[in-house]
Design a protein around this nucleic acid. Sequence first.
DNA 1: CGGGACGTTGACGGTCGTCAAAATTAGTGG
DNA 2: CCACTAATTTTGACGACCGTCAACGTCCCG
Lengths: 250, 250
Amino acid sequence: MNIQYASSSLSELFLQAGLSESEIKHINTVFHVTRKIKRGDYLFNSGDKFKDIFTIRAGLFKTSFLSSNGYEQVTGFGMGGEILGLDGIATSHHSCIAIALEDSEVYAIDFNTLLDLSLQIKNLQRNITRRLSSEIVRHHKELMVLGSMLADERVAVFLLDLSTRLHARGYSKSEFILKMNREEIASLLGMKHETLTRTLSKFTSEGIIDVQLRTVKIFNFNKLRSIVKEHVKPENLNLMRERTMVVMQN
Amino acid sequence: MNIQYASSSLSELFLQAGLSESEIKHINTVFHVTRKIKRGDYLFNSGDKFKDIFTIRAGLFKTSFLSSNGYEQVTGFGMGGEILGLDGIATSHHSCIAIALEDSEVYAIDFNTLLDLSLQIKNLQRNITRRLSSEIVRHHKELMVLGSMLADERVAVFLLDLSTRLHARGYSKSEFILKMNREEIASLLGMKHETLTRTLSKFTSEGIIDVQLRTVKIFNFNKLRSIVKEHVKPENLNLMRERTMVVMQN
DNA sequence: CGGGACGTTGACGGTCGTCAAAATTAGTGG
DNA sequence: CCACTAATTTTGACGACCGTCAACGTCCCG
């Protein structure tokens, strides 16, 4: 079995600057509790008592929110270096489920211990709150995808996002293998799996990408990006009120 | 002008238990910086330098995410007792805009000071992280609404949610006045304003509610709830893998 | 009182969900 | 390792839902 480890260690994750070597060492010895999760198993389940947060060391997870009716809404895919379990802080119980899509390894970090430690190390405290806030910002962007984009655009966003995240972890940005099935991707994108398949087929026939089952090759990044950007027409400016006509930088 | 104040004070917001009277008094004197925002003005704008977080003392805000193209996606409506500005922690700049939908008052709290204080008061630290985590959970639920529900169901969810939150603040749960226009509501729900209007008209003709412009009366809560629940059919259970067949409690 | 923003309704078409079937792959047990 | 079954992916046909465009009525504010 060939597991590629994320380069991120705990110290990198939580302490970006301003800490001495000895402090970092201390933290690493305290917190290095690794856990292996096999493909198909879950790391934590909806309703589980919250105790740890997890940083992904290797592998891939999907997180899903389950409605009381048993409907599953995929809320994201977690890769190396990312954090899982932050949803559990609110009520001391997890509100979603994290399932490994391939054999994976995580660091388990006792959250109460982490909070105690962050009382002494200010940078740690800041990084925790920043991580939490980043999740909020990420969800805002997802709201925009689901709230205003057509199927073509959503699929293009997904492919570009996946490509970027894989590239940042040392994989090819133009060729990769999906570890999730069509239905899981479609759920994240708010569409049916048939629509996803059709869109991928269309992109393939247009020469933008090539998809053979779970193997994806991206040929034309610019075309994908233009698909995302074109969707907003000038007319759509009408929601703004005068004194608030300022556009986000970046 | 008649402003109804939220009962929540800073001490209630951040310190649920375990603090002495003197500690609470100390905090309140340090942090009581109130700010009045007129209808149509913004509290903070996308791109603004992040400094304070805000608890809403009275009034109503909408928060929107602006894409680089100028498209506005409404991400939520904030009411008394709720917190605005948490998105800014991540990058030290706000990523969304908060606009008052009626004359409003907020407490402004310097976030760095708050963090410093939370180094000494453990309960404060816990409450901050919980608030942040609650936002994440809330967004998961919104993902489900946008990802899997039809227009009828989304509108029913919106009406029930608004009713619940208004009721919790001492207003009638069955009769209220919308402070936002159709387009803003529709944006939050991921639909066009014409579709929203049509759905409201349909509910009215079915005797479930009555809508006259911005005045809403709810006659049949059970019908609204059943519209939300019926949408998930047994077939939709197929995304689950065997060992993960556990449904969220609540 | 007039103009602009807002809300409503109708007609029409496009997008996407539903249902069905077939092909291919993955998983399982002998 | 092979055979068999389940799961996944793809494609087609069809229709429902909802977005688009347009027109009109109403409300609000200067």
